[in-house]
């Protein structure tokens, strides 16, 4: 699936929820299911600092594609992180670098990306793209 096909799939999943709580329960569930990172990879190098919660991001190449792994100490952020990984991980650096993320806005979670100081999500998206740009060059 392309990045946009995955985004559309997530938007469809969220269209089923008519209640904010269902939506958040789904995100919380995704947050809990995300494997996260082993403690030794939660390093200063991988950290993306937010005002309230930290996010750790790791990237490596798998064949032609870029694979992301990430973690957060707050479960809702972790759920959103999990969706970002689902959308972007496993695609070519070019695809990732050129992608436009519209699903967050469409599922009504854009406030989490607007609060730049309170969580590391905005920086995380930026960092994912930076990895993609960097891997395009090697």
């Amino acid at each position: 699936m392309t990045i946009n096909e995955i985004q559309d799939e997530i938007i469809e999943e969220f269209a089923l929820f008519d209640d904010w709580a269902d939506k958040y329960e789904y995100i919380i569930d995704m947050g809990k299911k995300l494997k996260g990172l082993p403690e030794d990879q939660k390093t200063e190098d991988n950290i993306i600092k937010g005002c309230q919660s930290r996010v750790w991001l790791n990237a490596h190449k798998d064949g032609e594609n870029l694979v992301f792994e990430a973690d957060s100490e707050a479960v809702i952020v972790k759920g959103l992180v999990s969706m970002l990984i689902r959308v972007l991980s496993g695609h070519s650096p070019k695809e990732i670098a050129e992608s436009e993320l519209y699903f967050i806005d469409q599922i009504g979670m854009s406030q989490h990306l607007a609060q730049t100081r309170s969580n590391g999500l905005v920086s995380m998206v930026k960092q994912m793209k930076n990895y993609a740009i960097a891997y395009q060059l090697v």
Binding site: I28, Q52, I76
Partner: peptide, 18 residues
């Protein structure tokens, strides 16, 4: 995590600081 509490309370109309 306090942030999770804050986000969910906000959805319930309760503004706290976390």
């Amino acid at each position: 995590h306090p942030q999770d509490i804050g986000v969910l309370l906000d959805n319930l109309g309760v503004a706290v600081r976390t």
